[in-house]
Structure formats: structure tokens, C-alpha cells
Design a protein around this nucleic acid. Structure first.
Lengths: 214, 214, 214, 214
DNA sequence: CATGAATGAGCATTCATTCAT
DNA sequence: TATGAATGAATGCTCATTCAT
């Protein structure tokens, strides 16, 4: 087999990543062996090493996908919102994750359920794996700042309580999002719409009534 | 007739648990070997097996401690609160975790930081470990119901928006708590008081402004 | 009909051998992988297999080059010497190796240092590799007999002690040569001229005292 | 099994070393796997790791034994000789290696044949393994200086040609010894006594005949 | 002819667990 | 009881070799 086309190479890499994601989602990072991944992908034991230098690199790739799944929609929403209230921001973010599949950078369909399970494991991993932590924390900071900026604009527009600190409030927004994710994959949260509605009721009311009072 | 007194046995078990907690917090469940734990505890390699049947049992014990650390104060607060608003409930729960150490059932001091790091890992673990999941989910449900009940009382007292669904709102409360914990151990949240204040501003306002409207 | 000319084929084979020699000299036979050799030669991973059936064949080719480097000059000197003393034979042999490069059968320049390092490794290899041992031992025997014959002629001419046994003495000559090589590549022998001089002093005396007999 | 006595531990370590020596002698350092060594020693695959941190450590231990076998007798002879000629020093050194077995530091019998085969492989190894090279080169230097000193004393006593340089001559002595060893294990030298005799004739005759003859 | 992707057996090493002492 | 030596299955990874393109 001579040099394969970049497309085929990319496709095979994606298959290995998909296989790893299924394994990791089902069995966990550390209960999945490299032979497990290879078998799930239908390739030989050595094949993944042509695409990733080590198991850690596969974990890292999937952790980045998982963090991206969570961070990217929020960042995008924060960037485009004109005068979003906290409730609107959270609700829209949760909405963005209320799908069964997303499409990755190469157009492939990826199970949200699987990737969120990997995300929870990636939280464990980043605690003591520098290679996972660094991009995760940087990604988080980017999102947080983006949210803070949106909330600042919201304050000017009266949609966000003027007494709120945008930096802290951005953390509250991320906290709600992360807390939702954890319940969804680990604590049998099925009524995701209900969660979102109550976030709106609890937060949204607060913001709206404040404005006149001040 | 035991050769060692129950007190000494309990003390040794606690030392092994403490050693495991330090190891797990530092290196993770799966990067920590049983010999590591034994060495950290200063006992022989076989000793932990006189107190735990397997490594999984140690993980389980620590996961239960970790979940208990998070759930117990919330449950207690929910149980005793008369007419708590959501904001008060969350703020009090966060407050309860703003300590460096807690005291376990046998009166030993336990590092909150260490145990919270174990909690995040336990979230991973429960995804595919039945023995961890079952008590965790049950514990969560107990807390959730307790919060829901408190919020129901809060609605009657006008401290919680009447349009909120107590079941869903209880999940929001837990979501905020879990999201806070994750940021604290994984995403460099240092201003825990600031987080709590903004939770109060964002949520608390909502509850308070409703009252006059009714 | 070959697609490439015999010259180009020979040239490519020589490049692969040269690359293998560099790798083997630097990293050892068994720490060098076939991909290492291919990369060093700037060819594809499969290319060496069009010239050698296996890695062992490359090792064999280089081992033969290495043994040839040592044996050939000695044999030639022994063959042409008329009445050489032992000291003269050894000194001339060492002299022949006091160059930085030699020219191989196809006129290519080869590093003596590199090839001697391969020779030491080939000694290990021949201990348990029949394919390396057989030609090595045969080559050694040829040289030994050649030296023995030369020493026999030397005895008749009075240049070699009459009490010496040419067969044994030939082994002593080879022993000195091998011992010199080992020190040169492994035990930091830098004053190769000094070594040679002292061989002459120590052995030459024997030869010289015979001189009056002439 | 509680702590075993130092004697038993030492005995087991020695068994593993002996098994490794047999394997290495038969198959070579790099063709011998750790499971091979364990099987040869009759222990489990993990057992050697309780005595050696890695395969390299076993190689190192055996390489040191092998170098010691060669160096130690020579050094001892050089140290005690009063006015040794070069021939006497070499002959005595060869004599010391003309045994089938030697006794190691713990009183165990070790096959000389096996250890010499390991020595030749250790020469390869030291070319690119710092851990093997350093002690080997240091050991060599100690022996070389010891020989040089003995030859210096020999010069004063008239047993060594005054024109010889002790430093270089010491290298010649080591060269003869190493050359002999190589032929013995690799080039079918069986008449070791004959080799030794001719060394004496060629070297010793020289020295002895010089003085009176002239 | 040449390429380099793929194979899959093999290796060094680790570690949860057992059990003789 | 407590110890820690021993086990042996499992793991991440390598690499000689093949062969489809």
C-alpha cells in the first residue's frame, strides 16, 4: 500500500477516534486497552500507533473534542448575544447540547451522549495530567471571558443585575452548565427541558424585576 | 476473639483510607497501585486486604466519603430550613464546603481539598462501576428530594417563585453545587465567596422581587 | 529486463549498507530497526527488502565487511612477506588499520572507525549466529594459515625464533591484532603508534637476538 | 511469605543471575527475553523484578562479573609480581583463566566458558551503553596501571626491556589477553597451553636472550 | 519497481492478589 | 495476626516483514 490519500488517512484516524470514544464511553479511559480500541476499530493492534504516538494522545484528542463540545456553543452564543440575560445564555447553551449527535470538524457524526461521558472522565484526567489540563483550562478561560463580556453588555442593557460581577457570574453560568452535564450523564437527569425552564424561572425572574426597582 | 482491639482495627483501617485518599487525590484511582497505598500508609503490601477485599472496595469507601461530603450538608440544610430561598440554600451549601478540613465518623480530620478531588474522580467511576453508582445515585436522590421538599415549603412561604417546579429546581441547586466543585478543583476557582455572592445576586433577587407582585 | 540499471541498483544497495553501518555503529545491531536503516538511507521502509531478504542478511553483509577489513590486510602482508619477524607482521597489520577510511569493492569510501565498531559487535553475533560464524571462522582460518606460513618462512630465514610453533604464533599475532582493535574502539586506546612500537620492542627483541644467526 | 533471610534472598538472586548467564551465553543479551530468564530460573515472570529493576540491570551485573573475571586475576598478579617479565605476566594471566569454573563472591561455582561468552557480548554492549561502559573502562584502567607498575618494576630488575614504555606495554599485555579470550570463545582456540607457550617464546625469549646474547 | 500502510507476534514491565511463614 | 515474596495475567508499545497500490 503506497501513500494513502490525506482523505483516507483522515478517515481512518477518525475511525480510530470513534472506536476509542465508544470504548472510553463504555469502559472508561483506564479500563480500555489499546488492543480494545484496535479491535473496536477493526484494525490490528499496531495500527493506532500510526496515527497516535501513545494512548495518552488518544485520550487527549478525545478530551479536547469533549471540552470543545461543551465550550464551543457557549462561546459562540456569548459572542453573538447583544443583551442576553443570564437565563437566556444558560438556556441557549443547554439547548445547544439537547441533540443526539453533532458533526465534527471533518463532517462526521458524533454521539453527544458518548462525548459527554468522555467529558466527565476528562475532568478526572485533567486533575493530574498536564497535557489534558492545559488546553482544558485555557479553553475554559476563553469561554469564561466571553461570557463575562456578554454579561457586561447585558448589564448596560439592563438584562443583567447591575450588582452582579460579570467575572463571577460567568463562573455561575459555567457552573450551571457543568452541573447539568454531570446530572445528565451520571445522575439520571432526563427532563433536560424542565431543568432549563427552571433555570429560566429562577434566574430570569430575578434579572427582569430588578431593573425597575433600581 | 480478635487479637487486636476493635479500636486499633478501626484506627488502622482509617489510616489506610487516609493513605488511599492522599494517593488517589494526587495520582488518581487508576494510577495508584495497592502497593502505593500500603507504602503511603506505612503498612505491608498485604495489610490493606485485611480491611478491604479489593482495591475496588477502597475506591468505593472513598467515593462514598466524597459523595457524603457533598451531599450531607445540603441535605441537612434542606431538612432544617423553614422557608429557604434557592439562593439561601445554595449559599449555605457552598458555605459548608468552605473549610479546609472536616471530621469523619470516627472523629478524624479529613482534607476537603483531597476529598473533592476524589469526588470528581468518583463521577468518572460511577459511569461504569455499578458498586459506585448505586449508592451515589441513591444519595443524590435523597438530597434532591430533600431540596425539593424545602423548596416546596419555600414556595408556600413566598421565598421561592411559585412558577418553579421544586423537582427541577432541586436539580438546579445541585447543578450549581456540582459546577462550583468542579471549578474549584479543576478550573482554578479561587474566589469561592465571589461565586456564592453572585449566585445570591442572580437567584436571590428573583425570589425576593416576586413576593410583592403576588 | 531490470527497470533500473545494474549500476544504479548497486549504488542503492551500497547506500543502504552505508546507512546500516552508520546505524549499527551508533546504536548496535539490535537497537537498530529496519525502519531506522531505511530512514537513514532516505528510502522507504520496504526498499531494503529488495536488496536483502532480512535484517540478518544486512548484519551478515556488514559483518563480512568488518571481518574483511581486519583480515584482508594481514593476509596480504603474510602472503607477500619474505622473511617477516612476528613484530614486523603485527606492526604492518596495525599500520594498515591506521587510516580513517578504506575503499570498498565498489570504490566507495568507508569509515574505519564505524566498521571496527561493527566488527566488535560481529564478534558477539558470531557466537550464536551460524550464518555469521561460518564465514568469520573460515576467514580467520585462512588468515591464520597464511600467517603461519609466513612465520615458517621467517623461521627458515632466522627472523622468527626456531622454538616457536608457527600455528600457535599465528594465533598470537591475531590475538595482538584483535586485542588492539578492542582497545581502540572500546578502551580508549589513542596512542596507536605507541602500542605498535611496544609490540615491536617486546617481540622484536626476540627476533633481533636471532639476527646474529643470519 | 514473610521477609526471607538475607541468605535466601541472596541465593535466589544468584539463581536468577545464573539463569540469565546461561541464557545470555546461549542466546545473547538481546535474543534473551525476561520470560526466558524467569523460565530458566524456574520462577514466575515477575520474580526477577524483585531483584533487578530492569533487564539492563541484569545485563550490567553479568557484564561486571565478566569483566571482573578477566581483570581481577591480572590485577592480582601484577600487584604481587616482583620482577615479572611481560611473558610471565601474560602466561600467568592466561593460566588463571585455564579453569572450567571459578567461585563467585558468594561461593557459588560459575562456568568460565559461559562468562567469557558474556564478556564478548559485553564488549558490544559497552560501545553504546554508558552504564556498562563506565565500570568497564574504569576496571580496565585500574588493571592497566597495575600492569604498568609491575612492568616498571620489571625494568629495574632487568626482566623487561628498558626501551619499552610501561604504559604501552601494559596495553600490549591486555591486548594479548583479550585476543586470546576472543579466539577461545569465537575462533576455536583449543590449544590454550600452546598459545601461552608461544607467547612466552616470542616475548620471553626476546627479553631473556637480549641481555646475555649481546 | 517503489512505496509505506498494515499486520500481529513478541517484549519489558506492572500490579492486584495470594499465602507460606 | 502481619508480613512481603511470589505469582501470572495483562498492558502499552515495537518492529520485522508483507503486499496492495
Amino acid at each position: 500500500m503506497p501513500r494513502i490519500s490525506p482523505e483516507r488517512r483522515e478517515a481512518k484516524r477518525a475511525e480510530i477516534v470513534a472506536a476509542a470514544r465508544r470504548c472510553f464511553s463504555r469502559d472508561g479511559f483506564h479500563q480500555t486497552s489499546m488492543p480494545d480500541i484496535a479491535a473496536e476499530a477493526g484494525v490490528s493492534a499496531g495500527a493506532p500507533y500510526r496515527y497516535f504516538a501513545s494512548k495518552e494522545e488518544i485520550i487527549l484528542a478525545i478530551a479536547e473534542d469533549a471540552f470543545g463540545l461543551v465550550f464551543r456553543p457557549v462561546e459562540r452564543l456569548a459572542a453573538v448575544s447583544e443583551a442576553a440575560s443570564v437565563a437566556e445564555l444558560v438556556a441557549a447553551s443547554l439547548e445547544a447540547l439537547s441533540v443526539d449527535t453533532v458533526t465534527d470538524a471533518t463532517g462526521r457524526s458524533v454521539s453527544v451522549e458518548e462525548l459527554l461521558r468522555c467529558a466527565v472522565q476528562a475532568w478526572s484526567e485533567l486533575l493530574r495530567n498536564e497535557a489534558v489540563r492545559t488546553p482544558a483550562v485555557e479553553g475554559f478561560e476563553v469561554v469564561r471571558r466571553s461570557i463575562a463580556a456578554a454579561l457586561g453588555r447585558g448589564q448596560k442593557a439592563g438584562a443583567v443585575p447591575i450588582t452582579a460581577d460579570p467575572e463571577n457570574s460567568a463562573r455561575v453560568v459555567m457552573g450551571l452548565l457543568h452541573g447539568y452535564l454531570l446530572q445528565r450523564v451520571a445522575f439520571s437527569l432526563t427532563d433536560t427541558a424542565g431543568f432549563s425552564e427552571d433555570v429560566t424561572v429562577l434566574l430570569g425572574g430575578g434579572a427582569q424585576c430588578e431593573a425597575p426597582a433600581r
